[in-house]
Amino acid sequence: MGGGLKPLDPLTLLSISYSGLGGRMQSTAALTVPAVILGAVVPIILLARMWLVSKRWDPRGQHCFVTGGSSGTGLALAILLVQQGAHVSIVARNEERLQKALSRLENHRRNSEQIIEAYSFAVNSEAGSAAALKAASGAHGGRCPDAFFLCAGSARPQFWVEQTEELMKADMDATYGAQAYTALVASKEMVKQGVKGKIVFVASILAYFSIVGYSTYCPGKFALRGLAEALHSEFKLYDIDVHISFPGTIYTPGYEQENKTKPKVTLKIEESDGGATPEYVAETILKGVQNGKFHITGDFIGNVFRASSAGSSPRNSYITDLFYGLVGYIALPVWRSSVDHTVRAHRKEHQEYLRQRGLLERS
């Protein structure tokens, strides 16, 4: 330093300030206490960041199994994984879309050694999920994949009074079973082979709350959250990491399809929702997984709902989650009140809709 003065560490400065400097003691201490805090906290932060970087998950050379991988978020995730050097197996029902997706993945490969395959299976049953896993493992000498990204699922928004037992079961299979069955067969094989990998669920922000129109969609997404919570605890027995993502509206062909049956009042409530591209959601999910996050959210609203609904789940950041939780404590009841007002205002139009559907006697 200029002038030949030897710099003093924060602890030395603090001891001098309290060693009897008369009237200056209080002011000196006031100046040096922040230095002490910075001197203690900054190294901890730097060490923590270095540790996190060293622990960051690298998909390079890993076999990643992606359901719902022929379009939307699943395909976007598969592309990111291929770009980072992973072996990737995508699974979906539609063979034509799968082959188009496979061609896109080939354009992003980093090297000729990467194994990139596509498999046509329905994963909303244990048998279908097991067949898909067996096929994908076959290309790797029977070894189970290292990471499972479970993106399969669909939505069919309607009013509760329009549902039937058959529709309810079909929706539970589409929202819960399509991921739970794959997680079941995957974890059995991972445990059997001693693979210490990852299982990543893709739920929805509607696993934190629900509104009109989603009565058969949200139960499956809430169930996925409950499953992830249980497995996050149980799989510590096997060193298998569990993650779950909660994206909001995603602009995909599936979103366009669900809007065909979505009630008008639901569309009204959602009209201010900006939504996100599959590419953005995929980047958020992969970043969250690489950083070891359990609950993964990708925007301000998602973080508010996550922090407000965390329960005993691990926090992403105690400091920022405190802020998000405070925002939620104040803002979410106000938002919910406005939603309820919108629903009540829809009563007259809704009654006419029910009459047209034969679900309300004409008066």
Rank of each mutant, 00 (worst) to 15 (best):
K260F: 10
S210D: 15
K262T: 07
C218T: 12
K262D: 04
I269A: 08
G274E: 14
K192P: 11
A203W: 00
V191N: 10
V212A: 04
D239E: 15
I205H: 12
L227K: 07
L231V: 03
T277G: 07
F209G: 10
D273C: 09
D239R: 10
K264Q: 15
K287S: 14
A228Y: 04
T277Q: 07
P253D: 04
V191G: 08
K260V: 11
V200S: 05
A207R: 13
Y208H: 15
H243P: 08
P253G: 03
K287G: 14
L231H: 06
S233M: 05
V200I: 15
K196W: 11
Y251H: 08
K192C: 08
I244V: 06
K264E: 05
C218E: 09
G275L: 01
I199Y: 10
P219A: 03
F246A: 07
A282V: 08
D241R: 15
A203T: 07
L224K: 05
K192E: 08
K221S: 04
A276G: 09
F222L: 03
Y208S: 14
S215M: 02
E270P: 12
T216W: 00
F294R: 07
P263E: 00
V200Q: 08
Y251F: 12
Y214V: 04
V265W: 00
Y251V: 12
V195L: 02
D239H: 11
D241V: 15
V212T: 12
H232E: 05
A276I: 13
P219M: 02
F246R: 04
